[in-house]
Design a protein around this nucleic acid. Structure first.
Lengths: 273, 273
DNA sequence: TCAAGAATTCCGATATCCTGAATTTATCTC
DNA sequence: GAGATAAATTCAGGATATCGGAATTCTTGA
């Protein structure tokens, strides 16, 4: 709690919070009153911020006076940057995997103590997953890809993440620390994860890490499918093809230094909030 | 120039400009000094804004003190594009089209006076296009999909767009207003556009509009390929399959009210800047 | 049609933000 | 490897833009 987020913050930070509110809210748009309430600022203030956001193309007013994020925001993010670099680089792999396996494929990256779904290509089967849509977050350790990444972090980081995430994992139905650690050990030695034990009934998946030059996990590719589609016959094939794509992707990533934004400030920031 | 962007603007708008600078800049990150210069504010000011952005997870410091956009920004943006859920809804169609035609498929939406590339699935052939990557913009009227959308706007809107875009189109190699209007008329009656006349040598494409319940274009599907791959034999087939997907997509869109953000403020806003 | 609620505008007080200078840190050259 | 240069970061005072309450206009629902 070095920098409290409860009380006063700079006007910029309040505006950014406002953006978050918009992003989390109904895609159809939010009413000014609700926005003001959610951000904790007065109605005129929210209104003025939204005016500025709209003037810059970051927000727009839909029918019914509702405010929502505008396309420019998306365009900006899509255009450039490290995250989208990875996404662009991985897109062909996702498409190939999806076409070959006829299943839903996820691209995850690590962000602090979470795994974030950067991209997803849907297969023909209806899937339920923790990660959910693009942009969805899960604690590191929950789910195939998420677990695969956690297993391939440097010792100390892994330990810090585990300590921080254990309560969150338990909250979401995970068994206990011992089984997490044994799963991690297995994942590290085998190089892949499968979740047939399924916290989600009827679902199963395989996740493999994408490693950087130092052998640390920077991302993960994973498959989510129906449990019946991951039988003993098919599993080895799925693992093999996933690993092959992950390795190819890792090769392309060499020039990138995917920032883990971990040791510097984020630990205290995230831990403290 | 109602609201000048040259001189003073609210601090929020300056911060948003800063975000633009970051997005446009080197993915590896930008130096504080250059950021300050690009945004036109002093170095300490830029620094403070970046601190706030970093604290909220919108920016981060890569190695070498360089600043760049951070993951949270992309996560948020991923949802901004979903304003209409269009991208998710269209994804399967894009994949089918790409698989069937073995060509590059674009999903475009209208945004003010531009067509924006919301999604793209690459085919095996190397393509050059105006729209470029995801997030890329072109003036309405330039390119297959862009033209298909413009052709299917309500009269008055179309007229306003044409007036505004003519100079921009001429700048980019378009012939003249008369040929634009005849192309639009043809596009409207036929229901599709093909650009074999190619402003880009060797390239050709087909674009069809995605219409809402009122018959207005809200999006477009288009194919971009090598001119030799769009011969008289194949063209009808491509048109047919594109139209069929566009129609199916339009059906899915019924419940949505895709805001055109047009008549209210955007015209003056965009026109004035 | 009326009424209640929401959105937008206005205005004064004040907290916040900006500019300039100083200090620390990194980078470059030899 | 060490000095010098340039950038990054911190600090403080003063000006200004920001904030919130109240009034007005507009919309929504009865």
């Amino acid at each position: 709690m070095t920098t409290a987020d409860t009380d006063s913050a700079s006007s910029l930070r309040r505006a950014l919070k406002l953006l978050r509110v918009l992003a989390d809210g109904d895609p159809e748009g939010l009413r000014l009153k609700d926005i003001a309430e959610a951000t904790g600022c007065s109605q005129p203030t929210a209104h003025r911020m939204l005016q500025d956001l709209a003037a810059e193309g970051f927000a727009e007013q839909a029918a019914g006076k509702r405010y929502r994020l505008a396309l420019d925001f998306y365009v900006l993010a899509a255009r450039a940057g490290q995250a989208s670099g990875l996404r662009e680089a991985a897109r062909p792999a996702l498409l190939r995997l999806s076409a070959t396996l006829s299943d839903t494929i996820f691209l995850l990256v690590r962000n602090g103590f979470d795994a974030v779904c950067l991209d997803r290509v849907e297969g023909p089967f209806p899937i339920r997953s923790f990660t959910g849509d693009i942009g969805g977050k899960v604690p590191l350790g929950l789910g195939q890809g998420s677990l695969a990444m956690l297993a391939n972090l440097p010792e100390d980081e892994q330990e810090a993440v585990i300590r921080f995430n254990i309560p969150r994992l338990l909250d979401r139905g995970f068994l206990d620390e011992a089984s997490l650690r044994s799963a991690l050990a297995q994942a590290r030695t085998r190089g892949w994860v499968n979740t047939s034990t399924g916290l989600i009934p009827g679902m199963a998946g395989v996740g493999v890490p994408v490693l950087d030059a130092q052998g640390r996990a920077v991302a993960a590719l994973s498959v989510g499918t129906l449990a019946e589609r991951l039988n003993a016959d098919r599993l080895p094939h799925v693992v093999k093809i996933l690993q092959s794509e992950a390795q190819a992707l890792a090769g392309k990533l060499n020039p990138f230094d995917v920032a883990l934004r971990y040791p510097s400030r984020s630990l205290s920031t995230i831990g403290g909030s």
